[in-house]
Design a protein around this nucleic acid. Structure first.
Lengths: 152, 152
DNA sequence: TTTCATGTAACAACGTATGATACATGAAAC
DNA sequence: GTTTCATGTATCATACGTTGTTACATGAAA
C-alpha cells in the first residue's frame, strides 16, 4: 500500500528551516526533499494555517518558523498536516448490520484505538527542539568520523 | 488512503463458518461478504496454507475450519493473511543519507514500532472463540429486542 | 514594470486493493 | 465415463489515494 509520508516530509523540512535560520523558498525546500516546490507549498499550507510558520511572497520571501521549537510537538505537526488516517488496516464495513461483523469490528477497533492513543501521546511528548538536538548529536558524531556533509 | 480490509474480512468469514458448522462454498461466503467468490478463495488461501482451514473440491466441497476456535488467535489470522503493513503513515525515505531525516525517521519509527507491538500483543490475546462468544452475546441481546435476523 | 515568490486549480503518473472473467483441475453424482 | 460442482489461479478491469507536474493568478520587493 502506498503510505502517506507527509508527516515525515514536513518534519524533515522544518528542521532544515531551523538549521538555516532565515527564510527559505519552496524551491530550496523542494531541493532538500527531492520533490517539487508545489508539493512543498501544499504540505506547508497546513502549518501556515495552524500558525507554526509564515510565508512571504516576493523578493527575499519564503518560509519562516513562527514559534519556538520547544513549543511545537510532533503531534502538532501531525495535526497540522491534517491528522491523516494512521492505519492501513481497516474494517470491511464501518457500520455493519451483521452481528458477526459488529463483533469483529469492535475487537479490531479496540486494538487500533488503543495503539493510536499511544502514538498520539508519544508524538505529543517529543518537541521539534528534541528532534533538532538529536540531529546535532548525530552531526557531531558524524563529523568526528571525518565526514562533514549533511545536506539535502 | 485505501485501507486493507482482509483481516476484517477473514474474521467475518471464519466466524460465519463456525456458526454454520459444515462446509461452505466460496460462493456462499462471497454472499455473506458481499463480494466475489474469487476474492474469497484468494484471501482464504493464506489460511489454508497455515493449516487453519481445509478446502475440498467437487460436490459437497467447500471450506471447513481445521482447528478448535480456542486455539486460533486474531494474530494468527493477521499472519495468515500475510501480515500486511499496519500503518498508513510512513517515512519519506527508508534509509536516508540526510542526518536530519535519520533523526526524524528514528523518532517516528520508535512510536510506530511500539504501537505495532501493542496491537500484535492484543491480537494475540483474543481467540476466535472469544469473538464467537461476543457474537453470541450480541445475538441473544438482539433476539430479546424482537429482531431475529443475523444474516450476511 | 520587471522579477521573484507564494497560492491554487487542474491534470498526469503511479501503486495498491478489489472485482471480474476465463479456464484448468479434481472430486462426487449420475 | 460423462456431467456437474467446486476449488486454484492467471489475467485483466476498476477504483482510489498519493505524489508529481503544468499553468496561471496574486502579491511584494527591486
Amino acid at each position: 500500500m502506498k503510505r502517506n509520508s507527509r508527516l515525515s516530509a514536513i518534519l524533515h523540512v522544518i528542521l532544515h528551516m531551523a538549521e538555516r535560520g532565515k527564510a527559505m523558498t519552496s524551491e530550496e525546500l523542494a531541493l532538500c526533499m527531492q520533490t517539487n516546490a508545489v508539493v512543498v507549498r501544499r504540505t506547508m499550507a497546513g502549518l501556515r494555517e495552524a500558525g507554526f510558520v509564515t510565508s512571504q511572497k516576493g523578493h527575499g520571501g519564503g518560509w519562516v518558523i513562527a514559534r519556538d521549537l520547544r513549543d511545537i510537538t510532533l503531534r502538532d505537526m501531525y495535526d497540522a498536516v491534517g491528522a491523516p488516517e494512521m492505519f492501513a488496516l481497516g474494517n470491511r464495513t464501518e457500520t455493519p448490520q451483521c452481528l458477526v461483523e459488529q463483533a469483529v469490528n469492535q475487537a479490531l477497533d479496540g486494538a487500533f484505538a488503543e495503539a493510536e492513543a499511544l502514538i498520539i501521546e508519544r508524538l505529543g511528548s517529543v518537541s521539534l527542539a528534541d528532534l533538532a538536538a538529536d540531529f546535532h548529536r548525530r552531526f557531531a558524531a558524524h563529523a568526528q568520523h571525518g565526514n562533514s556533509h549533511h545536506a539535502t
